[in-house]
């Protein structure tokens, strides 16, 4: 699966995470900004990576601005951003969900 266009999901509100996905050519690159990076940084990156892998995407750039989101929110925002990028929001990839 290839990321073609840049897409965004989420807000900068407290307890949310804003995920921006764009075309990559060097594997899965995640740039994370988070107030809780010391305590949950690895956790957040792992959660995002798992979603990317489920989509079978090999090259992608992700910018994630986290405001203390819980795992379920991180998953939802990542899925939505990727679907918007792939143009599959109307026909979601149910296996990934």
């Amino acid at each position: 699966m290839e990321i073609k266009k840049t897409a965004i999901a989420g807000t900068l509100e407290s307890s949310d995470i804003q995920v921006t996905v764009s075309k990559g050519n060097d594997g899965i690159k995640i740039d994370l900004t988070s107030d809780v990076k010391e305590r949950f940084g690895k956790n957040i990156v792992k959660t995002i990576e798992e979603i990317v892998n489920k989509f079978g995407i090999e090259n992608i750039n992700i910018k994630a601005v986290d405001q203390g989101a819980l795992d379920c929110v991180i998953k939802a925002r990542t899925i939505t951003a990727i679907q918007r990028s792939l143009g599959t929001s109307e026909e979601p990839d149910w296996e990934v969900l």
Binding site: E38, R39, F40, G41, K42, N43, L70, D71
Partner: peptide, 10 residues
Amino acid sequence: KIVGQEEPLN
């Protein structure tokens, strides 16, 4: 359960 496992501070 809500937040997950924290990493220890350094």
